[in-house]
């Protein structure tokens, strides 16, 4: 989407909407321990924030994470997930058994923090994949 739909009303609406969208995504990620939500939904919301900017403002949007950025995000997310699993293997537990990590006093709290870490990984993965999909679906054949 090289040009975007940007009229001035869309542009102003996008500028006022995006901070709340990103804040809501972070709330969904962090509040996943206490209510509905979690990594997948937060990642989809963050990806939609970037996609919204791309739809309204076109190729050089302000939140312009492109194809390579999306790939880096997706692979980093999956690697964060794997790294947390391997770290618990390193401290003498099973694979993905966060209770043994030395990040909190009690094993239950260490588990809660480990869940937060892997949810962050899931968030980055899903966000990157949504950006990749939108970029490839709309940019193909627009070479002039």
């Amino acid at each position: 989407m090289r040009k975007g739909f940007g009229s001035i009303i869309l542009d102003v609406g996008f500028r006022h909407l995006t901070p709340f969208l990103i804040l809501y995504a972070v709330y969904v990620l962090v509040h996943g321990h206490y209510g509905p939500g979690g990594g997948f939904q937060a990642g989809a919301l963050l990806g939609l924030a970037v996609v919204l900017g791309r739809v309204v403002q076109g190729q050089d949007a302000e939140l312009g994470i492109g194809l390579s950025g999306g790939l880096v995000l997706a692979c980093t997310g999956a690697l964060i997930f794997l790294a947390i699993g391997l770290a618990s293997l390193l401290w003498g537990g099973n694979f993905l058994d966060y209770g043994v990590l030395p990040i909190a006093s009690a094993p239950a709290e260490a588990r809660a923090l480990g869940i937060l870490g892997i949810e962050a990984g899931v968030t980055m993965g899903v966000m990157g994949v949504i950006i990749i999909m939108f970029d490839l679906l709309t940019r193909r054949g627009e070479r002039e």
Binding site: G38, Q41, A44, L48, M133, T138
Partner: peptide, 25 residues
């Protein structure tokens, strides 16, 4: 199933955006 409903709402929105962006092409 509030979690499933949340996911369904967000993914419904995302796929709609994708489809509309592709229909313009």
């Amino acid at each position: 199933a509030v979690d499933v409903a949340f996911t369904e709402a967000i993914i419904g929105t995302a796929t709609t955006v994708f489809y509309v962006a592709v229909i313009y092409r």
